[in-house]
Design a protein around this nucleic acid. Structure first.
Lengths: 108, 108
DNA sequence: GTAATTTTGTCATTGATTGACAAGTATAAA
DNA sequence: TTTATACTTGTCAATCAATGACAAAATTAC
């Protein structure tokens, strides 16, 4: 899945034959704003991921992957970050996880 | 470099023997707020990356890598994102780049 | 002790995001 | 070409989060 998150939503929506108004109602937002989201002029709000998953019977974890990957990609593209950035990010995730394990150990 | 961005700044600062007040002045922020940044209670503002690079004679690209990797890692950790997320992000970066190349081709 | 440094708490200001709605364009069917 | 439906764009007030600023507490070094 190489599309942006907006294109991804549009794909899902049109595949199911929904109009903007119909999907917007399910997501509790304005159809005009959903249009902007699909065309990349606004961001999709993380709070609505679950409603989106329900609307299309999607696995919430897959959706989260698409959503956050999209955010990271946009930042990297926008700021012209080095290719290393994502590798370093992974190291830092592991660091945060290991650090928290240690904190837990201390706590109890 | 597996530390958080805050820990990284603190490392740089103490290595050079700067006080919070001294570095804060170079970065044009309050020493109390720099303390919060170093201890992870606030975020470092992207606008100040260049000043930080100057303060310690660092390569701005390396600094950007640290900075954005830190942001991504925190999000992934916070939202418990799948390990795939960063891989998908890389694909999306490539997608955005290729898409823009195409746009350029159309434009001119 | 006290002086310097660092941390924590608070809050008004600022800035960005969002919801909402109006007005526009595009598409399709009669 | 009219009408209906779907989509897009522009705008702006309201809302929310991030920031700067400063006071005061805690920690560290002398």
């Amino acid at each position: 899945m190489k599309t942006t998150f907006g294109e991804y939503i549009r794909q899902l929506r049109t595949d199911k034959g929904f109009t903007l108004t119909e999907l917007a109602a399910l997501l509790k937002l304005d159809s005009a704003n959903l249009s902007k989201i699909e065309t990349g002029k606004r961001e999709f709000d993380e709070k609505r991921l679950e409603r989106l998953a329900n609307a299309f019977n999607l696995d919430i974890e897959e959706l989260k992957t698409e959503y956050f990957a999209d955010q990271f990609a946009k930042k990297i593209y926008q700021y012209n970050c080095s290719t290393e950035t994502l590798i370093v990010a992974e190291e830092k995730v592991n660091y945060l996880k290991s650090r928290n394990v240690k904190q837990d150990e201390i706590k109890f």
